[in-house]
């Protein structure tokens, strides 16, 4: 099959970008979209032109590194899949395919379709963990977790941190991402001691990074490759409201004798 591509090209973060049109011929329907781009890139190298830069790594839908907006939809319209899991059989011969980076103020473009998503890492660093020292853990079976809670925590923990939720949201909100982590940890007994301080810290960081707020468009859930539910956002809002109302700043209590 043969398709036409409109690809976002941008030399670096400082320069202006634009769409460039390419033809991709001799494409097998069994190829993944990224394999099709590999073929296009090989052709560009042959012409001594810079290949299209895009992020990818595992190419099996779990590392969260790939992320293209395809025909206006982050990860394309396959549903429940990442960009690397999208196959050319989902397109028709002669299609025009628009390919561009995830766009958000908090995700600056580095080159072509490669963006900087370290803002998401900083949200985790703000409190997206359980403070446990290596070697200090009790026997694993001393902590009982009802299966329903463990399963729901796993649903939230399935987030791969790709940032499609941000790219899909008209407000470029990272609330699904943040809520998924807060719910994963907040649903488990191990996560209770820091539950509310975690909610405050992560939400604060999310705002500081320039992500917008949720106004219930639900686009995030629709594009999430792991189908993380927006119910978790409601959960986050409850935890955040409770935390904000009851928060007492910790007092310094040093020393000993």
């Amino acid at each position: 099959m043969r398709v036409f591509l409109q690809v976002w090209r941008q030399k670096n973060g400082q320069s202006k970008g634009r769409f460039e049109r390419y033809e991709a011929s001799d494409i097998s329907p069994d190829m993944s979209l990224l394999e099709m781009l590999d073929v296009v890139n090989e052709g560009l190298v042959q012409k001594n032109e810079a290949p299209i830069a895009f992020d990818h790594d595992c190419r099996e839908g779990i590392c969260g590194m790939c992320g293209l907006v395809i025909n206006g939809v982050p990860h394309g319209s396959e549903g429940g899949a990442t960009t690397c899991q999208l196959h050319m059989r989902k397109f028709r011969d002669g299609d025009e395919i628009w390919i561009e980076p995830f766009r958000a103020k908090a995700f600056p473009v580095l080159r072509d379709c490669v963006v900087d998503r370290t803002a998401l890492d900083r949200i985790i660093q703000a409190g997206g963990f359980i403070s446990v020292r290596t070697g200090a853990a009790p026997d694993a079976n001393q902590i009982l977790v009802p299966k329903e809670d463990a399963d729901l925590a796993m649903d939230a923990a399935a987030c791969i941190g790709c940032g499609a939720c941000v790219a899909a949201c008209p407000n470029a909100s990272a609330m699904l991402f943040t809520a998924a982590k807060l719910s994963h940890l907040g649903l488990l007994p191990q996560g209770q001691p820091e539950r509310y301080s975690r909610a405050l810290a992560m939400v604060k960081q999310m705002d500081a990074e320039g992500f917008g707020a949720c106004t219930n468009h639900e686009e995030c859930e629709a594009v999430c490759p792991k189908e993380v539910s927006i119910d978790f956002i409601a959960r986050m809002n409850r935890d955040f409201a409770k935390a904000a109302a009851t928060f007492r700043p910790p007092k310094a209590r040093g020393g000993g004798d």
Binding site: T134, G135, A140, A153
Partner: peptide, 22 residues
Amino acid sequence: VDIIDQCTAQGVPFAREYGGLL
């Protein structure tokens, strides 16, 4: 054996039985 303890304490959502055990 220590790894499982460590990871569980960190909140790794391992599969559970209905009784809450791993």
